[in-house]
Simulated scan of single mutants.
Amino acid sequence: MKPSADVLELIACAVLVLVSCVGNTCLFYTTRKCITGRVQTSFLLIFSLASVHLIKNLVVNVIKIVYSSGIVPDSAGCKVLHFTAALTTSLAIWFMLHLALLYHRKLYQIVHPSREAASLEQQQHSVRLVSALWVAGVAVYTPLAVYTRKAENPSAGNGTDPLSTNRMYVDCLIDFGNEQVELYYGKIFLVLIDVLPLAFLVFVCFWMSFLLSKRKKMTYGDIWIRDDDSEVEILRGAKFSILLMLLITPLWISHFILVCFLKDLAACVLIPAVLSALSSGFSALSPFLLMLVNYKMKLVSFCGAKEVKPTPPPANVVLSPYA
């Protein structure tokens, strides 16, 4: 007997919740262990990404598990499901773009050195921007929760309709009640706030790839100079930002395409599980890539670059004026 769509989606969501909770918990622990003073922007963004990933899995996927187990969705559950799923997806894209811009700026300063150092104002600006993104996300998707409702004639689970098992995609409806609102808000605005940052993320990452290739060709009068710890951390962070872009972009595009054609594909028993894997795949896999940014490699410590205090010379040694 072939497993039903509900069983496959339940298994997929359970695996995603388990993997994401393990990965993001480890990410929280390793990142928190690295903080010795003021929280840096990269740490703040990693904390924000981990929080978004946990919210997606502990709210969205847990609700999917509950509904896949046979419980009929109610109006409140449908609102929380759609609102949280859309909010966490957008926040993940926005925070990922912010992280890529951060490493792009640092990488650009390595390739094109500048005398200007990072100021405390830039750090405070990043904190305000992260907070503003959280507030903007909630504000943008609050109408979506208002327009979400439970279907008046919900599908009965004992019917022969192949769609009857996909309760979340049939019983949880988004009814804007107005064609213009559905067009401008539901089909244009909500798509653009994800597509535009995602397209800019791809552009920034390709620019970082160019800077990395340019950095590799840099010479200093034919003298090889070893990268210091901070530069190694920036180079690794830029490379992993590119990998994360290559992960989130195909997942988002694939999920968007399937949702657009869901009415034609909903009868397929694999579609609910595939949609869950595409929507939560980034939140499950990205924590393990983010941990590699601060992983022990070469001369870099587990928590990235650390200042090494020079050993004072003996008192009876005369220093050279060129030392």
Rank of each mutant, 00 (worst) to 15 (best):
residue 276 S to C: 11
residue 230 S to L: 03
residue 261 F to C: 14
residue 243 L to C: 10
residue 252 W to E: 06
residue 292 L to W: 09
residue 194 D to C: 11
residue 240 F to M: 06
residue 260 C to W: 04
residue 171 D to T: 14
residue 155 S to T: 03
residue 162 P to R: 00
residue 268 C to K: 15
residue 298 K to H: 03
residue 248 I to C: 12
residue 270 L to G: 09
residue 227 D to W: 01
residue 289 L to H: 09
residue 205 C to M: 02
residue 211 L to Y: 06
residue 228 D to S: 11
residue 285 L to C: 14
residue 238 A to Q: 05
residue 167 R to I: 10
residue 255 H to T: 12
residue 275 L to W: 01
residue 299 L to K: 12
residue 164 S to R: 14
residue 249 T to S: 09
residue 229 D to W: 00
residue 170 V to T: 13
residue 273 A to P: 04
residue 250 P to R: 05
residue 156 A to L: 11
residue 298 K to Y: 01
residue 244 L to R: 14
residue 246 L to E: 02
residue 289 L to S: 11
residue 257 I to M: 11
residue 226 R to L: 12
residue 173 L to D: 11
residue 171 D to I: 12
residue 281 G to S: 05
residue 222 D to A: 13
residue 272 P to Q: 14
residue 217 K to G: 04
residue 172 C to L: 08
residue 249 T to F: 06
residue 237 G to S: 14
residue 266 A to S: 08
residue 221 G to M: 02
residue 279 S to H: 03
residue 160 T to W: 09
residue 252 W to D: 09
residue 218 M to G: 00
residue 254 S to K: 04
residue 212 L to T: 00
residue 210 F to D: 08
residue 208 M to S: 08
residue 201 L to I: 09
residue 196 L to K: 03
residue 272 P to I: 05
residue 243 L to P: 05
residue 279 S to C: 13
residue 194 D to W: 02
residue 260 C to H: 04
residue 213 S to A: 03
residue 164 S to Q: 07
residue 160 T to P: 01
residue 216 K to D: 10
residue 185 Y to T: 15
residue 168 M to R: 04
residue 177 G to K: 03
residue 268 C to G: 07
residue 232 V to A: 01
residue 293 V to P: 05
residue 165 T to E: 15
residue 166 N to Y: 05
residue 157 G to S: 07
residue 182 E to T: 07
residue 246 L to D: 00
residue 209 S to Y: 15
residue 169 Y to H: 13
residue 202 V to M: 09
residue 162 P to A: 01
residue 245 M to H: 07
residue 293 V to S: 05
residue 294 N to C: 10
residue 294 N to E: 02
residue 229 D to C: 02
residue 228 D to N: 14
residue 269 V to E: 13
residue 205 C to E: 15
residue 208 M to D: 15
residue 169 Y to S: 13
residue 250 P to G: 13
residue 158 N to E: 09
residue 281 G to K: 14
residue 213 S to H: 12
residue 229 D to H: 02
residue 203 F to K: 06
residue 275 L to V: 07
residue 158 N to K: 05
residue 205 C to K: 04
residue 266 A to R: 07
residue 196 L to E: 13
residue 181 V to Q: 01
residue 197 P to Q: 15
residue 226 R to G: 00
residue 293 V to K: 07
residue 242 I to F: 12
residue 195 V to K: 04
residue 179 E to Y: 06
residue 163 L to N: 13
residue 174 I to C: 02
residue 184 Y to N: 05
residue 192 L to T: 12
residue 252 W to A: 08
residue 284 A to Y: 09
residue 170 V to E: 01
residue 158 N to I: 05
residue 260 C to E: 15
residue 211 L to P: 00
residue 192 L to H: 09
residue 217 K to M: 08
residue 261 F to I: 05
residue 267 A to D: 02
residue 182 E to N: 15
residue 214 K to Q: 08
residue 166 N to T: 11
residue 286 S to Y: 08
residue 272 P to Y: 09
residue 205 C to G: 11
residue 255 H to N: 11
residue 199 A to Q: 02
residue 168 M to W: 03
residue 214 K to A: 10
residue 282 F to E: 07
residue 160 T to M: 10
residue 166 N to Q: 13
residue 229 D to Y: 01
residue 245 M to C: 14
residue 244 L to E: 10
residue 299 L to S: 06
residue 217 K to Y: 03
residue 285 L to F: 08
residue 186 G to C: 14
